[in-house]
């Protein structure tokens, strides 16, 4: 009962935070124009990339044109979701050095929650557009059936994949509590995830695959669950099992990351004045 009340509290505050994120957009109309301009550009770049990859390789390790688009599209979608909710992990060093956690620590909610959700990056929506388009294109190419069960699987997959990404951002960012430096992990993380979630990881050496499966669970962001969903042999988990493992991996990664963050927060020194 207490847990349920707690859950409602967090959902209620999340709704209020989302409202504020939207209001901030409306407050600066110029940003909307930038947003509308960047939209088609992002879409074009995203689409050109997938086109290039597919034309160049045709099939990779048994993945055909449509399946690659499906994988790529879903990966961009979970990337976009992680940009909306978890992008602050990239800039944690700045938050640490600037004493930005002071305010969160004086409020009666989880600091990890506040860190991510009081600053929802609504502009991350722009990344959703190319993702959805490429994904739809892939679906159409392979004749993916949008049955209720399939839609549910994709939702579970996206939640898990987004949590894995967010967890990795949080772990990397939390090192700032020890280093006390404002390293921007953005470029590095983006590169890492682009290279490992937009193409099947089965094309990489086995040792690398092992790391991406068991140590940093990035393989579960797209490769395993998508191959499971599309019936492509990945040698580990087939069908819905893969999707559920993705969700489990996501929750686990986020929990480990939150624990690491909390450990770091004890070393937090605010900002001197």
């Amino acid at each position: 009962m207490k847990l349920l009340r707690e859950l409602f509290h967090y959902l209620d505050v999340t709704a209020a935070n989302i409202k504020i994120a939207f209001l901030s957009i409306i407050e600066y109309p110029a940003n909307i124009i930038g947003w509308l301009l960047s939209n088609p550009i992002q879409f074009l770049v995203g689409f050109a990339t997938i086109q290039f990859v597919v034309n160049e390789f045709g099939a990779i390790n048994g993945w055909n044109y449509g399946q690659l688009a499906f994988l790529y599209g879903l990966s961009v979608i979970s990337h976009a979701l992680s940009m909306i909710f978890f992008v602050n992990g990239w800039f944690m060093g700045w938050w640490v050095l600037d004493g930005e956690f002071d305010r969160m620590l004086t409020r009666p909610m989880s600091v990890v929650y506040q860190f991510f959700f009081t600053n929802i990056n609504i502009f991350g929506i722009t990344d959703l557009v190319p993702g959805v388009i490429v994904f739809a294109y892939g679906c159409q190419k392979i004749g993916f059936c949008f049955t209720l069960a399939n839609v549910f699987q994709i939702l579970v997959l996206l939640v898990g994949a987004t949590l894995i990404r967010g967890g990795v951002y949080l772990i990397l960012g939390s090192t700032s509590f020890w280093t006390r430096s404002a390293i921007d992990f953005g470029a590095f993380t983006q590169e890492l995830f682009d290279k490992t979630t937009m193409y099947p990881i089965s094309m990489y050496p086995e040792a690398f695959q092992f790391i991406l499966t068991y140590i940093i669970p990035i393989g579960w962001v797209s490769f395993y669950p998508v191959s499971g969903l599309l019936g492509i042999e990945n040698g580990l988990a087939n069908g819905q099992v893969a999707t559920w493992i993705t969700l489990f991996a996501g929750i686990l990664t986020m929990l480990v990351a939150a624990g690491f963050f909390k450990l770091g927060l004890r070393r937090y020194e605010s900002a001197g004045n």
């Binding site: 509290h9 209620d12 505050v13 709704a15 209020a16 935070n17 504020i20 209001l23 901030s24 407050e27 600066y28 409020r107 009666p108 909610m109």
Partner: peptide, 18 residues
């Protein structure tokens, strides 16, 4: 919140502190 009217910041606090 720097960007918004004062009332919006209060509204958020109202939710945070229930």
């Amino acid at each position: 919140n720097w960007d918004l009217r004062l009332g919006e910041s209060y509204e958020l606090l109202r939710h945070i502190y229930q």
